Every structure is written in C-alpha cells, then in structure tokens.
Amino acid sequence: MELRVHLKVENVFTAAHLATQQLFVLKFLKITVISNQNDQTPSGEKTCSEMINEDGSFEFDDDDAIEKENVIRSEENGGVYYNNALEVNKTKVKVDELPLYVTAKPKSSFQEEFERIPNGLTKPYEDSQQARNMSRNRYKGIYPYDDSRVKVWFDGSDYINASVIDGFNERNAYIATLGPMSKQLGDFGLFWEMVWQQHVEKVVMVTNLIEEKKVKCDQYWPNVESSALYGNVYVICLSEEKYAEFTRRTFQISRNSEGRELHQFHFTCWPDRRVPEDVAPLVEFRKMVLNTKTKLNGPTLVHCSAGVGRTGTYIAFDILTKEGEAEGSINVPGCVLNIRQNRPNMIQTWQTQFTAEQYSEKESQAIERNKKLKAKIRVNADFHR
C-alpha cells in the first residue's frame, strides 16, 4: 500500500497525527518531577495503604497489570516510588522530523526509557484522605493533589476526585476526573454540580460504559429526548448523533432559572488495554471537539474510568498538537511531566508494540466516510487495509 507523509505543521491533520505517533509510543509513561531522591512522605501524613477503607473497597485500575505492581510498590514507600532516573529527557523534536525520529529509535529504547521513569504520588493529597471524602474515591492510588483538585461545594463537602490540568500556554484548560459511578456519586448530582460550577460546556468521554464485562462508567445522563434531575441540575438530552467511531450528544442543563447548553463527545472505539490502531478517527474526533463553539470559556472536562490513562492520553494529544502547530516542534516527555504535576499517574500504561503509521489514502477516505456513517457499530465501521 502506498503511504503518503504530509510534513507541513500548519496542516492541523498532519500535526495531530505526527504528535500522536510519538505520544502513542510513550503512551502512559509514568513521568513525574522529583528533584530530591531522598524526599519522604510529609511528617505525620499516613501512607495510602494506611488510609484505604478497611473493607478493601478500593479498586485497581486494571488496564495494565504493571500498574497494579507499581501502585503497590508506591504505597509501600509512602506513596512515591523511586528508581534510578535522575531526569526526564526534555529534547524537543521538530514535527517534520518526527516520523524519522520514531522509526529510527529502537523499540527497546522506549521500554528502557519507561523503566527509568519514577512514578507515584509525589505531592500532598491529604484532602482526598479525609474520612468524609473517602467514599468519593474509586481506585487505589489515584487521588487528586491538594493544590490542583477541583473544589465543588455539594452535600457538606467540597471534594470530588477531579483535577484541573494546564494546557498549552493556558492555565486550567481541562478537568480530568473519574468516570461517574453511582457507588461514588449517588444520583450523579455531584458530577453535574461540578459541570455547572466550573462552567463546563464540553465533556470528552473516552471509555465505554462496559468493557470486557466490566463496568467502567455508569450512564450519568438521560436518554435522548428524556430529562432527569441530578441534585440541583436539571438535564435534558436534546440530540444524539452516532458516527462510526464516536457519538455526540447535546444537552440543555439548567439550575434555578438559568440555562446552558452542554456537548458530550463520546469516543467509542478505544480498544481495551491498547491504543487505537488508526489515528484518523481520534484526529477527526478532536477536530469535532475543537470546532464546537462555547460561550463561557470554561475548561473541557475529560474522563475515562480512572481519569488518568486514556484521559491523560487525550489531553496530551491535544496539548502536543497545539504545541506542534505553534512552535513547529513537540516535547512529549515534557508535556506528560507537566500534566502529571496536576494529577498523579496521568499517562499510565506502557504500550508494548508500536508501528509508525503515515497517512494513507484509505485513512483519509475513512475520515470523510466517518462524517456520513451513523448508527454503525465498530466492527462494521472499520475500513480495511
């Protein structure tokens, strides 16, 4: 099959694809800033293992077996796992040189880079461990930092397992949060209160409700042409458009006498424990998110199940694309390092296999076809090489 590589950074399509190439190589790398290898858990602060519920009700984010091992090892060391890494590679790569950079670098070197990088909770997260807040956590080891957590005043507490994330030259551009579950959020009133208080007009959902017979997220919205009251927020689902790789829903939300419009973008073809095989649908998905106009200039809310893995990948993908367009080069490790300062474990699972893909004619055709195909399940929506 003849492949065509487009190298102009001003082309949004190309910049997004090239940024994703390297991002997916380094997908879910555990990058954190640790300036002192002798740092310890703050005096008087209990370790995570000492503070988890006695009934053992916390879950592991089981997208990657390695993550379980690292979380356990991290908590045994007071929340931070150190290895021999002294610093993260901060070299920027020019966008038009990225295909060569990716293909020339041995796959083994990505694994070695992964193994050198520290991971774990590196900043205070005491608020998440308060007794009244513990029930609002889901996964062991995934807690928002005190200095970047979203504060939502609801039902006697301002805590929700959500973090503000800085974007490219933009403070608090995103909110990363757990996929809403009734076990943690009851009637989802807390989630919708966060949407309202933070002026959210776009929700990016990068998980399905059930994957491999496991519940990843509950349906926290009403069906199309239906309505529901979640806490103090009244929600009406105005429309639902199903495309080959994603679904777009539009809601009217109101509180007291004030009303707003909310758009949910639901990416439905992210494979379990892997990255999307084809970059094109994710590029088209992101374009739809960006091209949707808003009025309040609030953050984009992004969630998967744990709010760190796929969530971190989508946010990094968006940041790197903007960086590539603006500066002509990208810094993947630096990007991930930055977002992990806002929320722990962002970019979480190692991708063991990688194939450098360039744009093909069929990929371009698939993107155009995706605009027209509706109500099709994933298996019938794929294009064939």
Rank of each mutant, 00 (worst) to 15 (best):
Pro222Lys: 11
Pro222Ile: 09
Asn223Trp: 10
Val224Gly: 04
Glu225Tyr: 14
Ser226Cys: 14
Ser226Ala: 13
Ser227Phe: 11
Ala228Val: 10
Leu229Asn: 15
Gly231Tyr: 12
Gly231Trp: 13
Val233His: 08
Tyr234Ile: 09
Val235Tyr: 10
Val235Gly: 09
Ile236Cys: 15
Ile236Leu: 15
Cys237Ser: 14
Leu238Gln: 13
Ser239His: 11
Glu241Gln: 11
Lys242Tyr: 11
Lys242Met: 13
Lys242Glu: 14
Ala244Met: 10
Thr247Met: 12
Thr247Cys: 14
Arg248Pro: 01
Arg249Pro: 08
Arg249Gln: 09
Phe251Glu: 12
Ile253Cys: 05
Ile253Asp: 06
Ser254Ala: 13
Ser254Met: 12
Arg255Glu: 12
Arg255Met: 14
Asn256Glu: 15
Ser257Cys: 11
Ser257Lys: 14
Glu258Trp: 03
Glu258Leu: 09
Arg260Pro: 10
Glu261Ile: 14
Gln264Tyr: 03
Phe265Gln: 00
Phe265His: 00
Phe265Asn: 00
His266Gly: 00
His266Glu: 01
Phe267Pro: 03
Thr268Ser: 03
Cys269Arg: 08
Cys269His: 06
Trp270Arg: 00
Asp272Thr: 08
Asp272Tyr: 10
Arg273Cys: 05
Arg273His: 15
Arg273Tyr: 13
Pro276Tyr: 01
Val279Tyr: 09
Val279Ser: 10
Pro281Asp: 00
Pro281Phe: 01
Leu282Gly: 01
Glu284Asn: 07
Phe285His: 02
Lys287His: 10
Lys287Val: 03
Met288Leu: 11
Leu290Ile: 08
Lys293Leu: 02
Lys293Pro: 02
Thr294His: 07
Thr294Asp: 08
Lys295Trp: 04
Lys295Ile: 04
Leu296Glu: 13
Asn297Val: 01
Asn297Trp: 03
Gly298Glu: 08
His303Arg: 04
Cys304Trp: 06
Ser305Thr: 12
Ser305Arg: 09
Val308Ile: 15
Val308Ala: 09
Val308Ser: 06
Gly309Val: 04
Thr311Gly: 01
Thr311Trp: 00
Thr311Met: 02
Gly312Asn: 06
Thr313Phe: 06
Thr313Leu: 12
Ile315Met: 02
Ala316Met: 06
Ala316Trp: 01
Ala316Lys: 02
